[in-house]
Design a protein around this nucleic acid. Structure first.
Lengths: 191, 191
DNA sequence: TCAATAAGATACATTTATGCATCTTGACGG
DNA sequence: CCGTCAAGATGCATAAATGTATCTTATTGA
């Protein structure tokens, strides 16, 4: 027996339990009951804090996303920064996959939103980070502004997310390197 | 009153109704009851043919995928063939999105498969089509075999599917053209 | 030390989807 | 023309999940 938890300590334990359930079973198999059991408590405790499973799931994902900030500092070199960006994003692969099951599993049918809204809602910081890296690279003269069309500017994050969504896991190191050296940089490098 | 349907005619009507439900609500909101009502019949008629909603949904998607074959004939030019490939694939956007909601909404948790199995199961023909186009292009000497790494060879279909999954709609014409002319061909063109 | 508050347990009603059993009736084949 | 079989309707039992009300008890703060 380790006593009775209260306030923030309890809430953290509840969100952690919710996250583990989400990561293991996806939003489809996500139930308040299972979360309560895993957290060693009962449903009313959850019901007092969140209205329904959707709210709980979002709160759990948000907390988890906040753990690993995605900002990449200026390293003086695009390639280094892009690889670092992909590496950090990879640490969030399971969070992204979990968030995705949320949107395709009925949440979006209530809010009438499509999964791309997830991009705006949860990974706003992610795309901003990439944009910042590319802006710096343009300033340095490493890449050509004119070659940065919309499709190309989002190419790396698109490839990354597609991989995560399809495999439910992070892209391996060598694949990330291939994206950067074999695809992205050749397309935008200054002539 | 248009009389009582039987056999194959009835089965087609059931699968069509199931497909419309899937496309409208996604797998999460997909119920046998709703399908039966839409088809103008009752649940036992469905239960006699399929065991559960997963089987029914898969049958509906399969039937739908079979409508528009994806083979692209030899046009003598890669660019033409790639654009045609993307155009035909676009006609299937809703099918792909619907299939995807199926896999992320609980079906895969029963079968312990990840969404990439969907790729293998449902769009095997799709990737084969692209591979065929690229093989022809290599033979013609239009693109460089050595440049066709794994990530690049699947680049177009990856971009296409990512777009479909995120927006639940087909990529517009100009975006497809940008993928081909602005991204893919520059990467693989013979020096 | 004690009162207030919230954690935790338990029980009940409700909702939603499903499987199955039964029964009537319409359509097709011999 | 009629018998057979399946379509279609209806009802019931079940299972899973949720919301909520109630009650006990541990913990915190005055």
């Amino acid at each position: 027996m380790k006593g009775r938890r209260r306030g923030a300590a309890l809430e953290n334990a509840l969100l952690d339990a919710a996250w583990e359930e989400l990561a293991e079973r996806g939003y489809a198999g996500f139930t308040m009951e299972d979360v309560a059991v895993r957290a060693g408590t009962s449903r009313p405790v959850l019901a007092r804090r969140w209205n329904g499973k959707a709210e709980l799931a979002i709160a759990a994902i948000r907390k988890r996303m906040a753990i690993a900030p995605l900002d990449v500092p200026d390293r003086g070199d695009v390639r280094t920064e892009l690889l670092e960006y992909l590496e950090r994003a990879s640490a969030r692969a399971r969070e992204i996959a979990a968030a995705f099951t949320l949107f395709t599993s009925g949440y979006f049918q209530e809010t009438a939103s499509s999964p791309s809204d997830l991009q705006a809602a949860l990974s706003a910081g992610e795309t901003r980070t990439l944009a910042t890296i590319l802006d710096r690279a343009v300033e340095r003269g490493e890449i050509d502004q004119a070659k940065l069309t919309g499709a190309i500017a989002s190419l790396l994050s698109d490839l990354f997310r597609y991989h995560v969504i399809m495999t439910f896991s992070a892209p391996p190191d060598d694949l990330r390197t291939e994206w950067v050296d074999g695809i992205f940089l050749p397309l935008v490098r200054r002539a």
